[in-house]
Amino acid sequence: MKRKIERKDWLLFALIILFALLPAIPGIRENSLTMHVILMIFLMASMSQSWNIVGGYCGQVSFGHSVFFGIGAYGAAMAVVKYGMTPWPGALAGAFLAAGIAVLISWPVFRLSGHYFAIATFAIVEIFNRLFMVWYWVGGAIGLDYSITEQGIVNFVWYQSKVGYYYGALVLLGLVFGVVRWIERHRIGYYLRAVREGQETAEALGVDSTKAKLSAMAVSAFLAALCGAFFAQYNYRVDPPMVMSLDMSMKFVLVTILGGTGTLFGPLVGAAVLVPLQEYSRAFLGGLGGGVDLIIFGLLIILVVVKQPKGVVGIFSYLRRRMVERESVGKEND
């Protein structure tokens, strides 16, 4: 079956090309804060997009994604710190491990519904967090610190400039968004949305809902773990509260909610709102501003959930509909 390339695909291509050309603009490449903010947007968007597969398209609101993110981060860090290898095999092993663990955990937990499911995922994060705190083989509460290695793509570390990380994050973004776009257009995407709209109905139509949910979870965990590996490489260190905490889990969820769940561009929009808010308030208010960014973010989340559950993307499509309606009304009057 040949599928038509839609406007969404062109938009995605155009955005990625635009992002790829961005560092060429004088002033951006030299400003390491700007580079940091943009690449953090890419990372946050990729993280939330990976969550979006399960939480948005499939409707299973999991608060446990920091576990997979953490496993990926630890995978890369263990390869570098403990075994003196490049991070690549570690990241890959971490991603497969995360997918395996995701399936193993989710298989019983998916039997729970609603609030019971949400609380179970909280509990899982807390268990992993506390176990990693005392698991000395992976560094315990102190975590793992990178020693200095030669910079470049092989070790995936750069010290002087952020350009390497920038393109790394962009590739990650392209990969995650590409996968989600592929899912959106193929049979599995329709299965997931059918399960979200009504599990019983979907099953009555012959969708194996358990299989659909588990495969969504596996793909989602795999991608989240890759994001985690990137995060560890970027920070040169990893410890349990940094990657495997409830706060981290909530970021996956809230960024997507803010942007728009179950939409392709929602996570990117959400990240583009949150990351600058967070990074610039931290850069300019510094120690004085303790928590100001999160006060604003908290209010934004309340506002979005109460007023526009479809997120910022929902606001855009509402505005576009309004414009189209006004145009057609105008034509009728002519």
Binding site: V61, V253, L294, I295, G298, I301
Partner: peptide, 18 residues
């Protein structure tokens, strides 16, 4: 069912950081 949970999570962030 989850929307109240998310809204109150926003409230939680707000109260904690205030």
């Amino acid at each position: 069912a989850i929307s109240a949970l998310l809204a109150t999570f926003g409230l939680s962030m707000f109260l904690k950081n205030v």
